[in-house]
Design a protein around this nucleic acid. Structure first.
Lengths: 350, 350
DNA sequence: CTGAAAGCGCTAACAA
DNA sequence: TTGTTAGCGCTTTCAG
């Protein structure tokens, strides 16, 4: 390994001179700098990150702490972020919590001790105190979910508006028994979505408590179970709204398994816009989220923060709007089945 | 930040004693070890990785270099690996190449200079020489795709067998004009899959060169285009086989858009088993891959390698078998349409 | 403009 | 069984 000393020896100058030249210190003459640069390249010098880090510099690593990368939602975000950060010389360190606060703490601990440049996190429902403390030690930003105790650096979605729009769409189509399956209201996003659903209900409240199922938003199984329960109700709902990507998958699986005719028997609104939602049955009406743009915005802002001052990041929150993508899975309540084959499939955005 | 010295001062012992106690050195008395451990926990001591690394240790980071995390295939692998590595105290550093060899080189460079413990890579078609050189400097393993020049540490799938089985399935159903859309044969996987397809064709060769489309395996758009071309052929194929996950998505999208009736007009075999494939139209017959198990096996082996000797990893290759999952999208060629409940579920199209 | 020297936190050889 | 000492490669005073 070529060190700063080797270059110094070769050039007959002191190591510190080389160090300064390499970091473009104004006190070093242009001539020396040029020579140093040349020799450095020639010898294939690569700065030793470990040594730099020991001197207080942070690594080029950005921690990315999320529930589960298999969720297309987070994968999209990871991709956008990775691209964004990579172009600025940063690497993404992936940590999955599976919504377990201890796993989250563990991850954040490791990231902190690895001297990461910053952390981008989708926090669990109740982050550990220590997690919060550690986060505050380095630049960080919350994604999607926001906890006040962690701070006001947040990039997210207007969850209430999103669900409200979806619910209003169904209400407008004459639906009254509208069910909702979503993440627990212990999560900020879960609570906000539930709120949007409630507010947009024609009656202001679900007709029936049995129409609302809250649970683990990351579990497909939960979506299936909840759907199964709804379908076995004496008075079935006429429409279902999903409150998370994985729940949507669960709902679609169960409906397919049971052979429920959509939208004849039941209208469905999904969450997110995964590949596949457009070609599910008659095309899934879904809540479209600008995930990729959100992530890119977050990444850009984050890089800016890291570079500008290594100290305290200023507060900043950004809220993106969701858009309802209307496809074939929602229809006026009680309307007769249309026989147009594929016309509704291609979703126009409302 | 709590250092080894702080603990030493508190305990009135020397820093090296603490260091040894912490690393469970046999020369330290049990009593001292216990005291040190207690105080360490109490003070919230976290070893400084940077300092360790400067002493030659490698970081707890494992580079994970793949084309695109949005591909469910890789997301699944990332998840399994992350879980596996996390339990051994390692972190995954995500790098996306988008199948660009220069991006790949860039990533590997950064990882190497960050002193990663190892690299798990899905190489591009033609890795740069420098990439290969760098890889050889640290423990590494190839996933799925294998290049001899990189080495013989490889965990993959029997691609030839997989495609062969899929093709044979269709041939057995009486299909003769079987089309294949897959990744370029410049990729090891692309070549192997094409080989499997060819070998299992009843005639040993595709009837028509126009039935084979090779391209970027990661591009949904490529899958769509190829499908469009196949459908516009004067003599359409009676079956299509996909050679990658994203291509499968493209095929399904295009078939849905054009309202092609599957399996009446056309039989389809997908690649991989994404959520959604099971509920696409009549259920997609697909090549199921033990991705998660593969990744876990790879992770376990890798940890073992890293821990056992930090030097040269021994050669090892593991080949997993794919399994054909037969659902509703394949049918005997020319067979009359069944009026099964399933196909009625989602209307007539698709 | 450049050099010498101290130390970041840790480990490992060398003493005791 | 423990302490002392000397660096790892780099930055950063403090002196020239």
């Amino acid at each position: 390994m070529v060190t700063i000393k080797d270059i110094a020896a070769r050039l007959q100058v002191s190591p510190s001179t080389v160090g300064r030249a390499l970091s473009d210190d104004p006190r070093i003459s242009a001539a020396t700098k040029k020579k140093v640069a040349e020799v450095a390249k020639e010898m294939g010098y690569v700065a030793n990150l470990a040594a730099r880090m020991m001197r207080g510099a942070s690594s080029n690593l950005v921690g990315f702490v999320i529930p589960d990368i298999r969720n297309g939602f987070y994968a999209t975000i990871a991709h956008a972020l990775s691209k964004c950060l990579q172009s600025a010389g940063f690497q993404l360190a992936l940590s999955e919590t599976e919504d377990d606060r201890m796993a989250e703490l563990q991850s954040v601990r490791e990231l902190a001790s690895a001297n990461v440049a910053g952390i981008i996190i989708v926090p669990t429902a109740k982050p550990h105190r220590e997690t919060v403390r550690l986060l505050k030690l380095s630049p960080h930003v919350q994604l999607l979910r926001r906890h006040a105790m962690i701070g006001d650096q947040w990039f997210g979605i207007d969850d209430t508006q999103a669900l409200s729009e979806a619910t209003a769409h169904l209400a407008q189509l004459g639906h009254r028994r509208i069910a909702y399956i979503g993440g627990t209201d212990e999560l900020p996003t879960g609570a906000a979505r539930l709120k949007g659903y409630r507010e947009a209900l024609p009656s202001g409240e679900p007709e029936d408590a049995a129409l609302v199922h809250l649970g683990a938003p990351g579990a497909i199984e939960f979506g299936r179970d909840a759907t199964r329960r709804l379908l076995s109700l004496a008075k079935r709902p006429t429409a279902i709204i999903a409150g998370s990507v994985q729940v949507t998958h669960g709902i679609l699986q169960e409906l397919t398994t049971q052979g429920v005719r959509v939208p004849d028997e039941l209208s469905v609104v999904g969450f997110g816009d995964e590949p596949g939602f457009s070609w599910w049955g008659p095309g899934l009406t879904s809540i479209g989220l600008p995930v990729s743009d959100l992530a890119t915005a977050c990444g850009l802002w984050f890089i800016h923060q890291i570079k500008r001052n290594a100290v305290q990041s200023t507060n900043y929150t950004s809220v993106s709007q969701a858009t309802l993508i209307v496809r074939g899975s929602t229809r006026r309540h009680g309307a007769p089945a249309k026989s147009s084959a594929r016309s509704a499939t291609h979703g126009l955005t409302v």
